[in-house]
Amino acid sequence: MALAEQTDHVRPTVITTERLTKRFADFIAVDAISFTVQKGEIFGFLGANGAGKTTAMKMLTGLLSPSSGEATVAGFDVYKQAERIKQNIGYMSQRFSLYEDLTIAENIRFYGGIYGLNRLAIAEKTDALLKRLQLEHARNALISSLPLGWKQKLAFSVSLLHDPAIIFLDEPTGGVDPITRRQFWELIYEASANGVTVFVTTHYMDEAEYCDRVSIMVNGRIEALDSPRGLKERFQATTMDEVFVTLARPTAAA
């Protein structure tokens, strides 16, 4: 997007990787990937099943130590400062979300506690969050009683509770109706407008079009990285789906 191009030089970098690599025995899951992500950017991280996205995300979120290469996330080194990284990022996926048998307020209190917020801050943030999502009436509702769309919006907001510099979203919108999916993307835009960097994976190729820039991983390598418009021009495609299918041939072992 034009905005990203024009302001790259003034926006600080919040993720940097340099030949970042992960090997499992003979298998190279992530093969020397190098890229940077700027503050406030919405960065789409795409690839076929088994292309290495999850392994790369685990290294960037401090859950897995790389085999070689360099990376810093929110200013912290992935080898030496993994715990500091965890404190300064948010994470949300379809699998890892809220506790179904706790209420909304209890979940917020729990995650606030995990991230070291004090009682007063948790109370303030709980009120603000419920108000923003128009869920004040549901404060004491069990998560299990909520529609999927509410759960996802709530999980997203909870993962921002500790004001992280970066939020990692792993296929956040699977299975919801199209209106809820768009409400979710508005939350992403809002976070980005507030300076939060959004690092997102998705299987919906139309969602790649929401991103400022998109990378496409194939067999552990980043095969393309540009704005959606730039990628479509380069591959003479009208949609990101076409770009993806052209690039992301499944691995031989798929």
Binding site: A48, H203, M205, V245, A248, R249
Partner: peptide, 10 residues
């Protein structure tokens, strides 16, 4: 095709 990447879906 739920949870399957765009290439496999195709």
């Amino acid at each position: 095709t739920t949870g399957v990447d765009a290439v496999s879906r195709k």
